[in-house]
């Protein structure tokens, strides 16, 4: 599903540099990425999602060499093929839960907002336990509910790859387990691939594979 070759990345300003000679994730795998803070885990997810672009090397996702794509094509690929659960949920405070879940459909032409999609959004939300919170604003939700809404938004377009950045980082132990269960169930049912950054070593046994980030990058900084 993911092939990374000779990846080099650095921000225009700053000394941080990410270098990954080779990394592969198979289709359907549930892979946890661990590593110390500041080691570039989130940067890696952003590169795979096409939000950032590598300076050198290649990133191939679902047989598409997205590192060579121009901005618009990379964006469209991300919207349709990748679901991203952000570290701090990234819910918009002026939209209620259902509007947040449907937001990607309203800001891009790559996704078509149909009645079927709206129906599925409600079903997904109910499945994730926030069916009764659809009209609430994010400020009225608990951390767990926010995370569920963010997961729901990421899963709605039925992505082939799900990237989760500290998806359980803000949750209590009980909610962590629940959220991970929901994520795994949905990944399994949609036959997607999961690449999740986590600091929580208790959760690692539940993944198919754990990638220690220090094995993959040469931090020259």
């Amino acid at each position: 599903m993911i092939q990374i070759e000779s990846l080099e990345f650095n921000y225009p300003q700053g000394e941080f540099r990410l270098s990954i000679p080779r990394m592969t994730v198979e289709h359907g795998e549930k892979v946890a990425v661990i590593g110390p803070s500041g080691s570039g885990k989130t940067t890696l997810l952003n590169l795979i999602a096409g939000i950032s672009r590598p300076r050198q090397g290649s990133i191939t996702v679902a047989n598409q060499r997205i590192s060579d794509y121009r901005d618009a094509r990379r964006r469209n690929f991300r919207i349709t093929e990748i679901g991203f659960v952000f570290q701090d949920f990234e819910l918009l405070d002026y939209l209620n839960v259902i509007d947040n879940i449907l937001h990607p459909y309203r800001i891009t032409r790559a996704l078509k907002l149909t009645r079927r999609v709206q129906h599925r959004a409600v079903e997904l939300a109910e499945g994730l336990g926030i069916g009764n919170k659809l009209k609430r604003y994010s400020s009225e939700l608990s951390q767990g509910e926010k995370q569920r809404a963010a997961i729901c938004r990421a899963l709605l377009p039925r992505p082939r790859l799900i990237l989760a950045d500290e998806a359980t980082g803000n949750l209590d132990p009980r909610n962590k387990g629940r959220i991970l269960d929901l994520l795994f169930d949905n990944v399994a049912s949609s036959e997607a691939t999961l690449l999740a950054v986590t600091h929580d070593h208790e959760l690692l046994p539940r993944f198919d594979r754990v990638v220690d980030f220090l094995d993959y990058r040469n931090d020259a900084a």
């Binding site: 939000i51 618009a72 990234e90 800001i107 790559a110």
Partner: peptide
């Protein structure tokens, strides 16, 4: 922050301007 969010969700600059 909000604009960064919608950009990460897949919003183009033109759509941001449209908003």
């Amino acid at each position: 922050r909000e604009l960064s969010t919608i950009f990460r969700l897949g919003c183009s600059r033109m759509t941001t301007v449209n908003l």
